[in-house]
Design a protein around this nucleic acid. Structure first.
Lengths: 216, 216
DNA sequence: GCTTCAATACCCTGTTCTGGGTAGTTTGTC
DNA sequence: GACAAACTACCCAGAACAGGGTATTGAAGC
């Protein structure tokens, strides 16, 4: 370990010198936090992650030149899954913020916040929370519930629904026929009708639509 | 319409008389909010939803006798998808809270809160947000990212990855070849290799695996 | 210099799918 | 009892796919 156990290590990736130094100072002025490394480019962070022992938290600018913060996020997730990433953003209500959360960020920090607020967000993460406002939380929830409950209605009949499910399970038409005690020709008919209702022209497209829109 | 347009209608489902009346009063004392109906049982709410025009928001006790709040939630989602549901809970850090969010609730309200806090939560929802604390938000995020990135590694090469993406977009082998300036036979070779690496035997299975395990 | 791997390209054969039909039988609803 | 919708089954032709090969080229690593 580079630091004694009791210190929580926090790295910073931010191309603006001033902000980067401010963040470093704020972190270091806390008795139990330390900013052992900071970077102006995402690429340098990746290199460091492959050599050094990873930090608890990374503060990452969302709009970096070169490799973007979101791209960098993916690298971090695979190099050090335990590291939590807080995104730094100018606009709270940015689509990029939401995108980051989808990519595995744990929350975000709006630039230009008070020192108190910066430390608070870090503490929220260390405390097992996710710093975000209610509106972003709603976006996440909405997207989340799309995974959980179906929406669109293509008026599939019961049989068609059943066949769509088998389709997603990788059954061939012949296998479906065997499973459902039908003629393969009947299954083919149902498939044609499913395609028409979903406005697709191949099993692949049907499966993608079924999975993406939670039809199954 | 039962109420003039400018009033936001909010229903309450809570078996405790006292709390129910408190909530009614708090809502009605706001100039633009009205509590036109309240129930002590979820079953009565369902009945009402089938007859009356649905409210903007329902405050729902999470631990009702008879039909539980979460069960009721499912009925609300299908009867009136536009209605937002705020759960009423005793413990903030309850698994049931999280369960409710999965079932489509938009947030929650801890019982015993100040009048100010109750109104604030309602306003957050009306304002397009989702009232929840950072810890719950983290739970949602974690669950969410489980859907988004389980990240298995099948060691696909760059070309194979590229072809898998086109596959998910519904391209035929011939179309892929045109898109990538390759011979259709080359695409076929890559497809075979992809199948072998993903341990599948058809496009359908490959697409399902790619979407389910977020390989794309 | 040798090896390994990715990427490219081809052959062949049999299977499966797609999309255009038609048509009889159930089933549910008014 | 009438009618619509759903379910069933079939024909056909052309396209696409799956799976078994082989082979060349160029770049990366040892």
């Amino acid at each position: 370990m580079d630091q004694p156990e009791k210190f929580k290590d926090i790295w910073v990736v931010e191309d603006n010198h001033e902000l980067r130094h401010t963040l470093e100072e704020v972190i270091d002025s806390e008795p139990d936090l330390i900013c052992s490394m900071s970077f102006r480019r995402c690429e340098d962070l990746i290199t460091a992650l492959q050599k050094e022992s990873p930090p608890q938290i990374i503060l990452m600018d969302i709009g970096l030149p070169g490799m973007s913060g979101i791209e960098g996020l993916h690298h971090i997730r695979s190099l050090s899954p335990a590291t939590q990433v807080i995104m730094l953003t100018i606009y709270e209500d940015d689509d990029k913020v939401f995108e980051s959360l989808c990519a595995g960020a744990i929350g975000y920090l709006v630039k230009g916040q008070t020192t108190l607020k910066i430390v608070e967000s870090i503490r929220v993460v260390l405390d097992g929370g996710a710093p975000m406002n209610a509106r972003i939380a709603r976006k996440v929830l909405t997207m989340f519930s799309r995974f959980v409950s179906p929406q669109a209605d293509y008026a599939l009949t019961r049989r068609e629904q059943e066949i769509l499910e088998l389709l997603v399970q990788g059954y061939s038409q012949k296998q479906m026929a065997a499973q459902l005690n039908l003629s393969p020709l009947t299954v083919a008919t149902h498939m044609k009708n499913i395609y028409a209702k979903l406005h697709v022209h191949s099993r692949t497209e049907a499966v993608v639509k079924a999975l993406r829109e939670r039809l199954i």
